[in-house]
């Protein structure tokens, strides 16, 4: 059950080994978190996070391997996670893959895989959990979008386009869930220094995973629907959206 300050006791985390998810879990473990299902592609990486969470006092941790692009495995995964936890207070969808934007490497396979990892897989999981949460009468689903989806550009346009899809899906789902007691949070981080961006040149206003995690936890407390990290990006992108295309394409980064 979520408490009056939005803190969960049980959570499912998809992309459970990601830096941002891990930092969110560290904070929640110090609050009310008691049982977690961690899902991701690499079981050893999940185990590392699981061990840390147990050390932080989380009573029940289950790690399940999951490939969000394997459509047939999604519904069984949700049923198992629900059976593991009973009530699901929070679902955090942090799966994502930057992939490539090199034209030569982009074929039907790479494109559909990037779209499945960043959009259709997370969207399908959010949908399944949302249906369960509507039945239980409460819950919150946090989805990681990205400023890359606010206006796409050449350096990561497939990733950006997929995140744009997820962002739009999440906001629409949020509207559809009004009055059910189930809430959606869309997180739009800028450049985050994580495993995914290792070796890249930081863009404007870079933040670390912990800063994003703090903003996510804060959004649970306030119930905010859209969270920009850092918050200045909201205003920066309000302007960037208006920049004429020729100029936009010449901006660095």
């Amino acid at each position: 059950m979520l408490d009056g300050t939005g803190m969960p006791q049980s959570a499912v985390v998809i992309g459970g080994a990601s830096d941002m998810a891990r930092d969110v879990l560290r904070i929640l473990a110090g609050r009310r978190l008691r049982s977690v299902v961690l899902a991701g592609r690499s079981e050893p990486a999940l185990d590392v996070v699981g061990r840390e969470l147990r050390a932080l006092g989380v009573e029940s941790v289950r790690c399940r391997t999951l490939d969000v692009t394997a459509v047939a495995s999604l519904v069984p995964f949700v049923s198992e996670a629900v059976a593991d936890l009973g009530e699901v207070d929070l679902v955090l969808v942090a799966a994502g893959q930057l992939g490539t934007a090199t034209l030569e490497q982009l074929g039907p396979g790479t494109i559909s895989s990037l779209v499945a990892t960043n959009f259709s897989g997370p969207a399908a999981l959010a949908m399944e959990f949302a249906k369960h949460m509507v039945r239980q009468g409460f819950g919150r689903i946090v989805l990681f979008s990205s400023v890359a989806g606010v206006r796409t550009r050449k350096s990561n346009f497939v990733y950006g386009a997929a995140k744009a899809g997820l962002d739009g899906f999440a906001l629409g789902l949020s509207g559809a869930l009004e009055g059910t007691g189930v809430g959606i949070t869309v997180v739009r981080p800028g450049f985050v220094t994580t495993k995914m961006t290792a070796g890249m040149k930081p863009a404007i206003f870079p933040v670390d995973a912990e800063t994003v995690a703090k903003a996510v936890v804060r959004s649970l407390e306030t119930g905010r629907e859209v969270v920009w990290v850092p918050p200045q990006l909201r205003y920066l992108f309000a302007l960037l959206r208006l920049v004429p295309t020729p100029l936009w394409r010449r901006l660095p980064g």
Partner: peptide, 19 residues
Amino acid sequence: SDLARRLGLAGPVLPSTRA
């Protein structure tokens, strides 16, 4: 009630088995 579930007043809400 939500209070009872949140605080486990009527007994533990957790599944009894641990992974």
